[in-house]
Structure formats: C-alpha cells, structure tokens
Amino acid sequence: MEVKDLKQLIKMITETDITEFEMDNAEEKIVIKRGQRTEIVQMTAAPAYMQAPAAMAAPIAAPAAAVAASAPAAELAGETINSPIVGTFYRAASPESAPFAEVGQVIEKGQVICLVEAMKLFNEIEAEFKCKIVKICVENAQPVEFGQPLFVIEKI
C-alpha cells in the first residue's frame, strides 16, 4: 500500500467512530488503533447451578423437587444407570413403540435401555452389564441432567 493511500485511510478512520481497523492480505498486514485504551470485555456462560430469575424460579424448581421427591435415598441406594448427558429422556424410539426397558425386565449387556435427546440428536443409552431393572426414575419425555439417575438396577 502506498503512503498516500495509508494517510487517506488513517484520515477516514479518524473522522469516524472506528477505534480499530485491521486489514490483512497476502503481501501486507495493516493494523490501526486509536484512542487511549481498548477495553476488553469477556463474557462466560452462567453456570447451570445459578438461580433463575424470580419469574422463572417456580417452573424450574418444580421438576427438581419432583425428581428429589420421586427418588428417596433409600430407593437409590442400589446401583443406578445415570444420564451421561443433559437432554430429554425417552423410554421408546417413538410414541407408538414399546419401551426399551420395563421394571422387572432383565437387560443384557449392550442392550439399549433408553434414548436421551440432546440438540436434536438421539443418543442410545446402553446397559454396560447384565442387570434387572428395579425402578425407572424419570418419566418419559422429561428433561434430565448429567449424572441424574435414570434407572435403579440390580446386577446379575
């Protein structure tokens, strides 16, 4: 870039509200910054455990309370199969299909026991060992958190 072109570019930038300009091509790189200091703003996502605004607190707290109430410590004292991801729990492949697993059913190692949908992808959750389903901890089509118990099982 010629010096006269560079001067013209600087003049154009100083006449506007632009504080930083960067141009990069195969032959050269031009960076023009103006002003006394550049402020860097970093944003991070709020942790999942943060409290929701008051308007949303009741709907969010209700499912959490329902999960806690439906899963007393005594019932979850046995082995559990937990959700490996955050998503929506489904007991069957479709509303018309039979559930993958029922209470009292013996499940073989590698057998699909439910689906957890996350970001429009259906993830098959498989049994890691032969077991018997003692309790299903989550209702069909309900949201689940990472590590939340889905099934109470008894190893065979």
Rank of each mutant, 00 (worst) to 15 (best):
M56I: 08
G87V: 03
A93L: 13
A69L: 08
A66R: 07
A92N: 04
A64L: 14
I85M: 11
L76D: 11
V67K: 14
Y90C: 02
A64V: 11
P72Q: 01
V86L: 10
P59M: 12
S70V: 04
E75I: 12
S83P: 03
V86P: 05
I85C: 03
N82M: 10
A92G: 06
A64K: 13
P63A: 03
A66I: 01
A57C: 03
T80H: 04
T88F: 00
Y90W: 02
G78Q: 11
A61G: 07
A66W: 02
A58H: 09
I60H: 04
P72N: 01
P59K: 03
P84D: 03
P84Y: 01
A92W: 02
A68H: 04
M56R: 05
A71C: 15
A58K: 10
R91Q: 15
E75N: 14
N82Q: 12
F89M: 03
S70L: 11
T80V: 12
F89N: 05
A66M: 02
A57V: 02
A74T: 15
A92M: 02
S94A: 14
A68K: 12
Y90H: 03
F89C: 06
N82W: 03
A57M: 10
I81K: 06
Y90E: 08
L76M: 14
A93I: 13
I60L: 13
N82V: 14
P59S: 12
A93P: 13
P84A: 06
L76A: 12
V86R: 13
A65V: 07
L76E: 10
V67A: 15
A71Q: 15
V67G: 10
M56C: 06
